[in-house]
Design a protein around this nucleic acid. Structure first.
Length: 880
RNA sequence: GGGCGAUUAACUCAGUUGGUUCAGAGUGCCACCCUUACAAGGUGGAAGUCGUAGGUUCGAGUCCUACAUCGCCCA
């Protein structure tokens, strides 16, 4: 027995192998003449720490890249992080505050210095954590969206788009975070039901004694009203056509407009219109050519247009204005109301619609080829139904607002000189453009004012599949690695990221960025809640790895994570993975413990072993075929479970038990070698899922050359195999299980030797004539004699009906009740089966229309079923 | 309001081209067992009217329609 611990200890072994793999540069990829398999990591936020979602996502990527490596491809997985403008800036601001500084007290340059300091110090923790998970990224390629190479390409992309007329600056209603003082994308606004109040306010109709009452949840915006709108078909208001009303408080005269948008049944049927502070009102304003009055500053205090409320906060103003309206007698009533309020994902402050000049990407032209690519499967989606979602979004695409009012990020390369804008990678180039355009050589660099805003972080990540290869500037690597093979990401960023990468791919490379996209589900807790920091329902990723090993966690995550389907995480899954490791470890211990000695083994044992091994090989090759198909379809959890079952049941419980020599006895060399080879192959196919333990076992199976590691082994190839054995072994397994059941039911020890009798039949002959099968049955069933008989025994016995084989297990005594129950249950099942098939065969249309092969099969099934019924009945009758 | 998806064992999910003893797996549960690789284990077992109602078909868990319930995305 070699010195192997009885329990598998993941921790130290995982550390050991990761270090060796790194030292050997196995993760590193350089272009060569092999087929490339490239993958780019969905860059986690530089502020990120490893959570369950990352673990799932990156385990999957690691599986794919390790499989590609085993397939002999040039596997290249590029890691990196993105700079996450808003999130990082928020962290930096907080950090500065702890140091007693405010963003406002710093210049932009000073702030950026601190931001980089923060990033260098705290950023990128997550990449180290990924190593613990076993991620086999080419770390020498680690990229950051704000490093020099990437930044250069981002700026280039902006300039390029501008020059091609695909960028514009537009006045748009945007989601404004008044705390972070930045624009938010729709995706960064979280909506939820909140309790608020609905205020009914009376507007006096000019030249009449009448009032029109409107309902609003935001009375402070009355200051910015420039119209009242009603539905054109609403008879209550037709008499006001052409009239104007007076806005309360500010006493402004504004028109009454008629617009289909107004819902007659909502509130009072009349709507106040505030184009500067509401998305829909803005649209109505455009249609009716209304004045736009903005009353808010960047920080959501009231600006100079806000009469006596100037300088006050928006919510303070709301309170004050309600009092003032009441005093003026213009507040009719106040109702409790629940509405959908949008808050900033980052600051939680209520999002303010705000008119602002922003940079936009014109999306319509970009979307065309990107939509086609997915619809025609140039870029294949897994699961396929994501295509529908994608199409829906692409067909209704809106222009992309890419400016953000932040400092941390790529500063927009647009330079202003009076009313003109010049877009160029550098100030100097912009200056040249300005001089030329304005025909004025007097302009100097400092006359140009660079745009204060930075670009949306996604504007860097959409270039990722080629920017990591410096693909916009150089073609050397991109020609080899691009398009990448697969992309693994969550479906929640299909629009934010995936769609845009496809667009960028066609825009700049004229080619898809990846061939296949695998969308993972979300990791949720057992109550189906999304795992999140705020809920505190997410286990600590690193602690899990400590507890169950990275292999165990990876297996746990993968074993129950169908494509696109959510994963309901349960620690039990990881425990199962850990136990699986231990099981394999002990299989290794068993095999390693065998002594080899060809001189003292019995030939019939060798024959028996070789037969079992031949059978197992056949099963293994069939498994390989299934795995191939599953990999092509990204059915990774199926693969994980198939390997689990195959190794645990077929290999450990059946094969090893079949070939295992008696305690202290040696094994023959040939069987030993073949079994080791099988174990080795099993480790190779499992390696992508559980990289560490498979390497450890691989190394322990036999001595290895210096550079022989499983990570770079060859995926096993299918060979010719003997399928004729599967029938006999299937029957063997049923017989063994049935014998064990008979023992269980009659309290007979598993190892007490019994006599088995077969009623003469074809299948009985098959079992008995093969020495190998017969000996295996003896060994596995602890059977001393196997006899062929033509009549049931008269001594106590248990009845077995296996397929069409009838057998008797001779017993010292028998529990007749149990026996009868079991036979009755079996009989009932068999009868039901027969009835169903008889029904089919009696149906002439079936017999006439179904393919002959199908009918033939049914006939065979019927015959088998009938003989089973007969055998069971006979046994029952004998019981009396 | 528009769209997508789901409903199979106590739980979580497979079920690929409609046809094999097809009704499966894992977990959990029950019984027995510290048997010489493994109690992080072994052996055996019980457990489902495939959401409901129709339809197509020789044949439906699988295809179609409607309904119910739930979930998600977009507006």
């Amino acid at each position: 027995m070699t010195e192997l611990a009885a329990r598998y200890e993941a921790g130290s072994i995982e550390k050991k192998w990761y270090k060796i793999w790194m030292e050997k540069d196995y993760f590193k990829s350089v272009p060569d003449d092999r087929e490339p398999y490239a993958m780019v990591i969905p860059p986690p936020n530089v502020t990120g720490v490893l959570h369950m979602g990352h673990m799932l996502n990156n385990s999957i990527q690691d599986i794919l890249i390790r499989k590609a490596r085993l397939d002999g491809k040039n596997a290249c997985w590029v890691p990196g992080t993105d700079h996450a403008s808003i999130a990082t800036e928020a962290k930096v601001v907080k950090w500065l505050r702890e140091k007693g500084m405010t963003k406002g007290s710093l210049s932009r340059e000073e702030f950026m210095k601190y931001a980089w300091e923060w990033t260098d110090k705290y950023g990128g923790i997550i990449l180290n954590q990924l190593q613990k998970l076993g991620a086999s990224c080419d770390w020498s390629r680690t990229a950051f969206t704000m490093d020099e190479v990437r930044s250069d390409q981002v700026i280039n992309a902006f300039v390029d788009l501008y020059n091609r007329g695909k960028l514009y600056r537009g006045l748009r209603m945007v989601n404004w975070d008044s705390e972070a003082k930045t624009v938010l994308s729709n995706e960064e606004v979280l909506y939820s039901e909140e309790r608020s109040k609905l205020y009914y306010v009376k507007y006096k109709v000019e030249d009449t004694d009448e009032y029109i009452t409107i309902a609003t949840t935001r009375p402070e915006t009355i200051l910015a009203d420039t119209a009242i709108a009603v539905h054109p078909g609403d008879e209550r208001f037709t008499r006001f056509k052409g009239k104007r009303v007076r806005v309360p408080i500010v006493n402004r005269s504004v028109p009454i407009v008629f617009d289909e948008y107004v819902e007659k049944d909502f509130g009072t049927g009349a709507l106040k219109i505030t184009p500067a502070h509401d998305m829909n009102d803005y649209e109505i304003g455009l249609r009716h050519d209304l004045e736009v009055i903005n009353i808010l500053n960047e920080d959501a205090t009231i600006n100079k247009n806000g009469a006596q409320y100037v300088g006050k906060d928006r919510f303070e103003t709301r309170k004050k204005i309600v009092i003032d309206l009441e005093e003026a007698g213009q507040l009719e009533k106040v109702e409790e109301y629940t509405n959908n309020v949008g808050r900033s994902e980052r600051t939680n402050s209520i999002v303010e619609p705000r008119l602002s000049k922003q940079w936009y990407v014109k999306m319509e032209k970009l979307a065309g080829p990107a939509l086609d690519a997915v619809m025609e499967d140039s870029v294949r989606f897994f699961p396929e139904n994501m295509k529908n979602t994608y199409r829906h979004w692409m067909e209704n695409i809106r222009d992309w607002c890419i400016s953000r009012q932040l400092w941390w990020g790529h500063r927009i390369p647009a330079y202003y000189y009076r009313d003109e804008v010049f877009v160029a990678a550098t100030r100097e180039e912009a200056l040249e453009l300005a001089k030329k355009k304005l025909d004025n050589n007097e302009i100097v660099a400092s006359d140009l004012k660079q745009d204060e805003d930075v670009l949306d972080t996604w504007f860097s990540s959409w270039l990722w599949p080629f920017s990591v290869f410096n693909g916009m500037r150089s073609s050397e690597e991109v020609n080899y690695y691009y398009p990448t093979a697969s992309l693994v990401t969550g479906w929640d960023i299909i629009f934010l990221w995936v769609a845009r990468m496809i667009m960028a791919g066609y825009e700049w490379k004229g080619e898809r960025p990846f061939k296949e996209v695998y969308f993972t589900g979300m990791v949720r807790d057992k109550q189906r809640r999304k795992m999140s920091k705020s809920l505190g329902n997410s286990p600590d990723a690193l602690e899990l790895i400590d507890q169950f090993g990275a292999d165990g966690v990876r297996f746990g995550l993968l074993s129950s994570s169908p494509a696109g389907g959510d994963l309901l995480f349960d620690e039990k899954l990881c425990e199962q993975g850990r136990n699986f490791s231990n099981k394999m470890w002990n299989a290794l211990r068993l095999v390693k413990g065998w002594k080899i000695d060809d001189s003292s083994v019995r030939p019939e044992d060798v024959e028996m072993r070789l037969l079992a091994i031949r059978w197992f090989e056949g099963q293994f090759y069939e498994l390989l075929d299934e795995l191939d198909a599953d990999f092509r379809q990204y059915r990774l959890s199926d693969i994980a479970m198939k390997l689990y079952n195959f190794i645990w049941n077929e290999f450990c419980s059946w094969l090893l038990e079949m070939v295992k020599p008696a305690y202290g006895d040696p094994i023959d060399l040939e069987s030993y070698k073949l079994i080791n080879q099988l174990l080795e192959n099993l480790m190779i196919v499992l390696h992508p899922f559980m990289p560490f333990i498979t390497e450890e076992i691989y190394q322990n199976i036999r001595g290895r050359e210096e550079d022989d590691h499983i990570i770079i082994a060859k995926w096993p190839q299918r060979k010719e195999s003997d399928n004729s054995l599967s029938e006999g072994f299937a029957l063997l397994k049923i017989l063994v299980t049935s014998i064990r059941d008979v023992r269980n039911k009659n309290q007979i020890k598993q190892k007490e030797l019994l006599t088995l009798q077969f009623m003469k039949s074809e299948s009985a002959a098959m079992m008995v004539n093969s020495h190998g099968l017969k000996n295996l049955l003896r060994k596995m069933g602890y059977v001393k004699d196997i006899e062929l008989v033509s009549e049931a025994p008269t001594v106590p016995h248990g009845n077995i009906v296996a397929q069409t084989l009838k057998a008797f297990v001779l017993l010292p005594n028998i529990n007749l009740e149990e026996e009868r129950e079991k036979l009755l249950a079996d009989l009932e099942y068999a009868k039901g089966f027969v009835k169903k098939i008889e029904g089919k065969l009696k149906n002439e249309r079936f017999v006439n229309n179904a393919p002959e092969a199908v009918v033939e099969k049914e006939r065979k099934k019927l015959n088998d079923g009938l003989s089973r019924v007969a055998m069971l009945q006979e046994s029952l009758e004998r019981l009396g």
